[in-house]
């Protein structure tokens, strides 16, 4: 039973030039306790989707259609039809969001303790002592010293410590879903590693489901169970983490996998994706990846292809040429894309 079911979600931004179709017909399920990674270039719609899920989009954004169904077994509702008060409660109690650990994620003039207290009060935790006990427990859980951190102001903490505090704060109301937007970007390698290990540990202990948005494929490789590739506002591939990394079937996923060099193993034939993403106001006819795609044929111009079942029932790709992609990558199942194409 999925905790979140998104159906045909479409989000536009109003601009002077006309509507930008930032998210188009997005459909996916998030199962209890699973980790889903959304990957894509900047402008692919992944952040619009993430903030759209908790309706935090800027004013210029408009949901043109779709449904976001939340169901934790006790309560079920469509997030899009919540009134402002119920939406406010949904936002932290059921579904929390962790942003990049920038200073701007905090109120700079109050201590960490006051930030926790504010959050708790806004969600009806009236008993200060209860909030305090829970906060100390959570800070312990993210391996911070509560006595030291609670008294500190945000600027007094390092980037890694701030990210841990943000994660602890997201857990304050025991949400079933946590959305992470670039959780380790701008952190140093050893700190990044510590945060990844922490997220894995917390997920195991607390069992929440995670959606994370990252342009960094290595974080997805570390943590994801399943993955979605987004391109020009649409989901173009849906697969398990191993299928997407070793057996991608959409040429765009292949391109992304091939664009990232590794430190271990063979370098392979690393290459960038030529061209740039399409104008989301005037989308091209047919498949929006056509102009950049090495596999394209004339037929690709006839329609924007729907998600097609490939290889296994859990694997879908929006590409009529997926068999040609499979043939080009060959049958060596476990090798990374850059090596197969070398």
């Amino acid at each position: 039973m999925p905790v979140l079911s998104v159906r045909d979600l479409s989000i536009d931004y109003r601009t002077r030039r006309g509507p930008v179709h930032a998210v188009r017909d997005v459909t996916f399920d998030l199962e209890q306790g699973e980790t889903l990674a959304v990957i894509g270039e900047s402008g692919s719609g992944k952040t619009t989707l993430a903030v759209g899920l908790i309706r935090l989009s800027p004013r210029s954004a408009r949901v043109t259609k779709g449904e976001i169904r939340y169901d934790d077994g006790k309560r079920a509702f469509d997030v899009l039809s919540l009134d402002p008060e119920r939406l406010r409660r949904f936002r932290w109690a059921d579904c929390a969001m962790v942003f990049q650990a920038a200073l701007s994620a905090f109120n700079p003039v109050i201590t960490i303790w006051e930030q926790f207290l504010d959050t708790g009060r806004a969600h009806g935790m009236g008993d200060k002592h209860k909030v305090h006990d829970r906060t100390r427990e959570l800070l312990d859980l993210v391996h911070l010293d509560p006595t030291r951190v609670l008294r500190a102001y945000p600027h007094e903490l390092s980037g890694g410590m701030r990210q841990r505090v943000l994660i602890a704060m997201a857990l304050l109301l025991d949400p079933r879903i946590i959305i992470l937007d670039e959780p380790t970007t701008a952190l140093d390698i050893l700190t990044q590693r510590a945060i990844i290990d922490l997220l894995r540990e917390l997920r195991g202990k607390l069992g929440f489901a995670t959606i994370f948005i990252s342009h960094d494929l290595s974080i997805a490789a570390e943590l994801a169970d399943r993955m979605l590739t987004m391109y020009a506002g649409r989901i173009v591939e849906r697969a398990t983490v191993d299928d997407l990394f070793y057996r991608p079937r959409h040429p765009y996923s292949v391109g992304l996998m091939r664009a990232v060099p590794r430190v271990s193993g063979a370098l392979g034939s690393v290459a960038s994706i030529p061209g740039s993403p399409p104008d989301l106001i005037r989308l091209p006819r047919g498949c929006s990846y056509y102009p950049r795609c090495p596999f394209h044929v004339d037929e690709c111009l006839q329609q924007d292809p729907p998600l097609l079942k490939v290889d296994t029932p859990e694997h879908e790709a929006a590409c009529i040429r997926w068999e040609a992609v499979a043939a080009a990558l060959g049958s060596d199942a476990e090798a990374p894309v850059a090596e197969k194409l070398a």
Partner: peptide
């Protein structure tokens, strides 16, 4: 050595068994 061992890599098998 520590740095290379800690780097997350864009390869699930490599990165999860480092």
């Amino acid at each position: 050595t520590a740095l290379i061992a800690a780097i997350p890599e864009a390869d699930p098998t490599i990165t999860r068994t480092k």
